[in-house]
Structure formats: structure tokens, C-alpha cells
């Protein structure tokens, strides 16, 4: 029956494209998490009245974050071609999309991280200081655990945006479901392929959202 509904879909190709999309997404989500946490912590900690208060570093970080958030993703990929070629050794395939995905989504997540950290009760940070905690301890034992639900739901939002980005990257040669939908579905007018890709992307998004919601709910003891 599936064969009748999707006559032009080759299951092996579809499966391979799905895996590529998943790889791209998962690896870039991990990269985004790391980059976003670093930038977000930097934004937060160098802000006025905080432990590493430093106007220059704060301003610089904010500029970097804002500039990269402002560049449309499709242009960012093109801009990063030389960089990608340098670190990945190619500009084709799903691996080549990862640097652009991380650099595109990291700054966005950084802002969400900053918002999450700002929500942490100032009194709790003060209490940790009063106990003689070092800045490291405050970051890893107070700031991050206390903002965890916000960090997770922020990552879910960013991750879903990233799935969208992978499809865009697919169009210019990164593979995955976006690529399949564009090359086979659009250029060869096999609309059933577009439909199949769409359904799979929606399923991936739903799973992502479900895991994110579940995690932040389980972890939230407030």
C-alpha cells in the first residue's frame, strides 16, 4: 500500500537520508550546546554586577553573538565554505554542514542560556558565596543545575530550528532529507518524495520536542 501512495520513494534512499539528517542534527546539537554554554556563560558572568564583570569582554561577546545571529543561515553556509574546507577537508556531505550549523545555532542558544542563567535566584548565588564557594563551584554546582530546565527547553527549541537548518543545508549539498526532497522530489517533480521527507522531518521534530519536554519536566523540582 505504501508503494501505491509513494511510488517514487526508494526506501533505502529515504532511510539513508533520514540517518544523515539525524547525524547532522545530533552532532550539531552537541556542538551548539557546548558553544552556546560557553558564550552564554561569558555573556552572563561578564555582565554588570557579576563575578567576572568586564565591559569589554561582555561587549565583544555580545557583538559576536549578535552578528552571527543576524546572518541568514543560507548565507552563513556560503560564507563559511573556506573555513569548512579547512577543518573538514570537504564542502560536500553532511559532515561539511556541521560547522555552519553549530556557528549558526550556537549564538542563538547562547542568548537562551543567558536568559536561563539570569533566572537563577540571586540569593542562591549569594548563599554559595557566603559559604566560600569558588567561581567554578558556583558555575558548575549552582548556575548550571539551577537553570537546567531552561537550558534543556532552550536546547529543544534550538534543536528544532537546527533540523530546519539541516534541510536548508541539504539543498546545497549536505545530504539528508532536505537534499532528497529537493533533488529527487522538486527537481524531478516526484512530489510523493517531498511528502515522505516532510512526514519524516515532522516525526523527528515531534520526537525531539517530546524528549526535551520530558527531560525538563523530570529535572524540574521547583
Amino acid at each position: 500500500m505504501l508503494k501505491d501512495l509513494f511510488p517514487n520513494v526508494i526506501p533505502e534512499d529515504l532511510w539513508e537520508a533520514t540517518l544523515e539528517t539525524l547525524y547532522m542534527t545530533i552532532i550539531s546539537v552537541i556542538g551548539t550546546l557546548i558553544l552556546g554554554l560557553i558564550l552564554g556563560l561569558l555573556l552572563f558572568l561578564t555582565d554588570k554586577g557579576n563575578v567576572w564583570q568586564n565591559r569589554f569582554v561582555n561587549f565583544l561577546t555580545a557583538v559576536i553573538v549578535n552578528v552571527f545571529r543576524a546572518i541568514p543561515f543560507i548565507i552563513l553556509i556560503l560564507l563559511l565554505f573556506p573555513f569548512t574546507d579547512f577543518i573538514i577537508g570537504t564542502i560536500r556531505g553532511w559532515e561539511a554542514a556541521v560547522p555552519a550549523l553549530i556557528i549558526g545555532a550556537g549564538p542563538f542558544y547562547a542568548r537562551l542560556v543567558e536568559i536561563g542563567l539570569k533566572e537563577v535566584d540571586k540569593g542562591v548565588i549569594e548563599a554559595a558565596k557566603a559559604m566560600g564557594a569558588k567561581t567554578n563551584t558556583i558555575i558548575f554546582k549552582v548556575l548550571l543545575p539551577e537553570s537546567m530546565p531552561a537550558l534543556i527547553s532552550g536546547l529543544t527549541v534550538t534543536g528544532i530550528a537546527l533540523i530546519g537548518y539541516t534541510a536548508i543545508a541539504g539543498v546545497i549539498g549536505a545530504g539528508g532529507l532536505g537534499s532528497l526532497a529537493y533533488l529527487q522530489g522538486f527537481q524531478r517533480r516526484d512530489f510523493d518524495v517531498i511528502l515522505a521527507c516532510t512526514i519524516l522531518i515532522i516525526i523527528i521534530v515531534f520526537i525531539f520536542q517530546f524528549i526535551g519536554d520530558l527531560l525538563s519536566k523530570v529535572i524540574d523540582k521547583r
Binding site: 535566584d121 540569593g123 542562591v124 549569594e126 548563599a127 558565596k129 557566603a130 559559604m131 566560600g132 564557594a133 569558588k134 549552582v142 543545575p145 539551577e146 537546567m148 529535572i219 523540582k221 521547583r222
Partner: peptide
């Protein structure tokens, strides 16, 4: 000072406990 603070206990109006613990 950090070492010394370990020997100065403090309690607060709004308790300031870590909700995650």
C-alpha cells in the same frame, strides 16, 4: 576570605536553598 567564610554561617530571609538539590 573564602576559607574564612566557611567558618561564618549565614541564613537568609528567603532561605536561598538550591531547588535542584
Amino acid at each position: 576570605l573564602r576559607k574564612k567564610r566557611q567558618k561564618i554561617g549565614m541564613i537568609f530571609q528567603h532561605f536561598n536553598l538550591l531547588w535542584s538539590r
